[in-house]
Design a protein around this nucleic acid. Structure first.
Lengths: 263, 263
DNA sequence: ACCAAAGGTTCAAATAATGAACCAATCAAA
DNA sequence: TTTGATTGGTTCATTATTTGAACCTTTGGT
């Protein structure tokens, strides 16, 4: 792991729940030396990726807004995807959630709510999803090349709820199911009261790039709803893939053109 | 300059005009070795700050969207500032433009248009402003500590138009004017047909953090309009500063509490 | 079939990152 | 106010990483 990667990994310590972090905490959380962290945050600050608050704690800086504007101007994907997500929300009556592989992480990209129900699953933007504990993560994991998959399945796997599956062997078995059906399911693995279905999304070259998911409160999930959501997901995924030039040939072939890995 | 800063400086090579850059071009533009650049972009890519297109060129990656969402959740400044900017636009009938110091750079943060005129100055989000050639830049420069100011004024200064002032001595003289009046003026220094007025913005600790500017087509700028804009700017700046806790005491003291530096 | 330029890779040499220890400032409790 | 613990920040010899010339392979144009 190079110095640059280590410095950038500091950015991932900031979350909605922990938006400001002091120097000592940053050193503790990252496991790096305080002097090292200090030099890194100084460089990140000079670039505007971090900034220091009045209490000397660090937080994400204003430069990311400029970069984000540049990103959306370059790849106006979110704008194009939102109507598709909204239609899927309306059709299923549930929260829809689009995530993409960002380097080695699965990041939330966009989501939409239905206004059908009084209760719905609340999503956070700015979230990174665990691969082994979410439907989206499993959908991606199932179609990742074996080496990358195994790297992400090496113990210890974090437990988020009592229902989180942390046994790598069982997860591998679940991934075979995902490949067989083309759909990933997860119930309460990340958030206790949430049940999700997800389908993988593929890049133009056939590699997996993200996932499209529908999340419902566990109390509402039934076999009938599951079937309706699965149908809606497989209907929507090709149109979404078309936005970045993925082949619509995948449309009627649930197990996509990634060979069943020999694991 | 540390390795991290060098790697991050690559991000600044991407602009709206040049949103995708190949490896060799990145090496040329940055003046770094190709192998060095390659390792850096690989690390930036692993973090999702860059991504590679089908043609192997690099562009800003999706992770910046996640970070931007986190930033706005942490510091919902843009949302709070926009109505103030819009009022200023409506009042002056011109384009308003808010920029902040991001580390060593002056980055565009937000802008609003008036719908009064058929013509107006178009701004780009995702833009970095030169200090010596814009009203915003001069406003900031005037109140920066002498060492930081001098660092930014060391020749060679880039020329953007025939009217760009690139003589550091003359710019220093102009900065005295800015400190005397509390307002910076620039005509055609960055974009040929644009004339701007700007006031500095100060952080809670009294240090300069950015600028608020009004930009008009040169053809429309008159002394009368200049006076009206200057008034509108000095009226708005305190309310804007209040958003981040800057002292409203500055309201009626055009030369803010930064001592006239001995230069 | 050719050439030029691109992306990507290698390895010894050079340089930058590292971490233990240190200082000064802040804060809470005694 | 004294104490003690913790914070942000700094130093410097040791160490490990980055660097860059040269190399290979692929791509695209003529």
């Amino acid at each position: 792991m190079g110095t640059v990667a280590k410095a950038l990994s500091l950015l991932d310590l900031f979350t909605l729940a922990r938006p400001e972090i002091g120097l000592s905490d940053l050193a503790r959380l990252s496991g790096m030396n305080k002097a090292t962290v200090y030099r890194m945050v100084s460089e990140l600050q000079a670039e505007g990726l971090l900034e220091q608050t009045g209490t000397r704690a660090y937080r994400i800086g204003p430069a990311v807004l400029r970069l984000a504007a540049l990103r959306e101007a370059t790849v106006p994907l979110r704008a194009a995807a939102m109507p598709l997500l909204q239609r899927l929300s309306d059709r299923t009556g549930e929260t829809v959630h689009l995530s993409f592989l960002e380097g080695g992480k699965l990041g939330t990209y966009a989501f939409t709510y239905a206004d059908a129900h009084g209760t719905s699953v609340r999503m956070e933007d700015a979230a990174v999803l665990p691969f082994h504990a979410t439907a989206s993560g499993l959908a991606v994991l199932a179609y990742l090349p074996p080496d990358r998959r195994e790297a992400l399945l090496t113990p210890p796997l974090a437990g988020f709820t009592a229902a989180t599956q942390t046994d790598a062997a069982r997860i591998r078995a679940a991934l075979s199911q995902v490949r067989a059906s083309g759909i990933a399911v997860s119930t309460g693995g990340f958030e206790a009261d949430v049940s999700s279905l997800a389908v993988p999304l593929f890049a133009a070259d056939g590699s997996v790039t993200g996932a499209l998911a529908v999340a419902t409160p566990v109390s509402r999930m039934t076999d009938a709803l599951r079937a309706r959501i699965a149908q809606a997901l497989t209907d929507t995924a090709p149109a979404l893939g078309a936005l970045w030039g993925a082949s619509p040939l995948l449309q009627d072939t649930p197990p996509p053109p990634v060979p069943e890995p020999t694991d």
